[in-house]
C-alpha cells in the first residue's frame, strides 16, 4: 500500500522549489526523486521515498531509540553470546 524506502541523496539535480529533484541511492540502485517536500534535506541525507517522491527525512537519533531501550533491558548481549558448544 505505502511501500516507502529509505535512500541516500547522492546529488541534487534541480533546485526549483516545486520541481526540486535529486538522485537518490537505494543500496546502490540510483533513481531520480522529487525532493520538494523535504527542502532541508541535502546530499548524504537519508529520505523516505514513495512512488518517486520523498515524504520525509530520516531522523538518525530516533533510528537508534528502539535499540537503546533494548540494550537497557540488558539482555541483548546475552542473547548474542554464542551458546556454549
Amino acid at each position: 500500500m505505502c511501500l516507502a524506502v529509505p535512500g541516500r541523496i547522492v546529488e541534487l539535480t534541480d533546485t526549483d522549489p516545486v520541481t526540486r529533484t535529486g538522485r537518490v541511492s537505494f543500496g546502490g540502485i540510483v533513481r531520480s526523486v522529487n525532493l520538494s517536500c523535504v527542502p532541508e534535506a541535502g546530499v548524504d541525507d537519508y529520505v523516505i521515498v514513495h512512488v518517486g517522491f520523498a515524504i520525509s527525512q530520516l531522523d538518525e537519533a530516533e533510528a537508534e531509540r528502539v535499540f537503546t531501550y533494548l540494550e537497557q533491558l540488558g539482555e541483548l548481549d546475552e542473547i548474542r553470546q554464542p551458546s556454549p558448544a
Partner: peptide, 20 residues
C-alpha cells in the same frame, strides 16, 4: 540497506518476543 537491515536483527526480535 541502511535503516532497513538493522531492523531485521534476530537478537532484537527475540528480545521483543521475550518482553511480550
Amino acid at each position: 540497506m541502511k535503516y532497513i537491515d538493522e531492523y531485521h536483527d534476530a537478537a532484537a526480535v527475540h528480545k521483543l518476543v521475550a518482553a511480550l
